[in-house]
């Protein structure tokens, strides 16, 4: 690990000033991803600005009637919050499907969003990786990629974003709130993660030095009839092969608001807008649902060894939405 300075801050402005004066500084939340990557010097910050003691913890009612989850709220506290469980149950399920009990206690909501999109080649300094060393190449494309992306990858990177939480946030139209020295700003989660393109090392649309302060869930997306289901290679404590977060409103058999997002299929949570558009406003039928799922997966570009994810994602959409409709 490279040497680094450590500062604990109590005010947001103090945190912003420290990172403005030191472009090598990084914010420290739970450290579950950052400290791990620092051990291999994949991350080598000059300074850690510990933001866990900022007054940004807790879940509160938002002005629009939705919920705002503070950035330093632990994943555990977010998942256990009664109003998250009641109004956005798929979010609670998604957080609980991630990592282990220990890591969820450490990890923060803001840090979860900022964990790196990554694969085993990224984590192995002996291998080239365009994300770690731009221009060095992507060994996953010709190599081991059975658990990599099927949507929107580029020849520069085929890794997937590992967050479960972010998949549910995508289905619920979440908004990320942040601060810079210019003041507060916000960005929809759907625009938070950048497409891979030819800059896989640039992962989010956050301006340099920006500090995430909260994630908000709009009232209009609240949906007790929602579910997160994760398929993985062992029963617990593994990244998703494919996961789906879905929220479904039905009115007299017609589909109202429907939010569907997939995990494990792209460098960011994959909002299934094609399937949503096919379902919205129509009578809910098994045939219509299968057609909607097929339409979403029509844009998939599986790699040599992960075509199974196309079938899996389609079947998961059908299974979860069917279950929700039958409740």
């Amino acid at each position: 690990m490279k040497e680094f300075g450590y500062r604990r801050v109590k005010h947001v402005q103090e945190a912003l000033a420290l990172t403005a004066n030191d472009t090598g500084a990084r914010y420290l939340g739970g450290g579950t991803n950052l400290v791990d990557l620092m051990k291999d010097e994949i991350e080598a910050p000059s300074q850690l600005v510990d933001v866990r003691f900022l007054p940004l913890s807790g879940v509160r009612e938002a002005p629009d009637g939705g919920l705002a989850i503070g950035a330093t709220t632990s994943n555990s506290d977010a998942a256990a919050h009664p109003e998250v469980r009641r109004r956005y149950p798929a979010l609670s399920q998604a957080v609980l499907a991630g990592a282990s009990g220990q890591l969820r206690n450490m990890a923060t909501v803001g840090g979860n969003l900022l964990q790196r999109t990554r694969c085993a080649y990224f984590a192995d300094p002996s291998e080239p990786c365009n994300k770690r060393l731009p221009g060095s190449g992507c060994p996953a494309l010709p190599g081991e990629h059975h658990n990599h992306a099927i949507f929107d990858w580029s020849r520069h990177c085929v890794a997937t974003h590992p967050s479960d939480m972010a998949v549910a946030l995508a289905a619920f139209d979440a908004v990320v709130h942040y601060e810079t020295l210019d003041g507060p700003a916000e960005i929809p989660l759907s625009e938070f993660y950048l497409p891979v393109g030819d800059t896989p090392h640039r992962e989010t649309a956050l301006p340099p030095g920006a500090l995430i302060t909260a994630v908000s869930l709009p009232k209009s997306a609240a949906c007790p009839r929602s579910r997160y289901r994760k398929v993985r290679e062992r029963a617990s404590y593994a990244f998703a092969t494919v996961s789906v977060a879905a929220a479904l409103e039905l009115h007299d058999g017609l589909v109202g608001r429907v939010g569907i997002a997939l995990g494990g299929v792209a460098s960011r949570p994959w909002r299934a807008r094609v399937a949503e558009a096919a379902l919205h406003g129509e009578p809910f039928t098994g045939a219509g649902l299968r057609d909607a799922a097929e339409a979403e997966l029509a844009a998939a570009k599986p790699l040599r060894d992960n075509g199974y994810k196309v079938t899996l994602a389609r079947n998961l959409i059908v299974a979860v939405l069917t279950e929700l409709a039958e409740r």
Binding site: Y6, R8, L28, G31, T32, V35, D36, L48, D50, R52, S76, G101, Q102, L103, N105, M106
Partner: peptide, 13 residues
């Protein structure tokens, strides 16, 4: 009172 992994927790933190 909350369980964590001490290998990813910095002593200073």
């Amino acid at each position: 009172g909350r369980r964590v992994v001490s290998c990813l927790t910095l002593a200073v933190a």
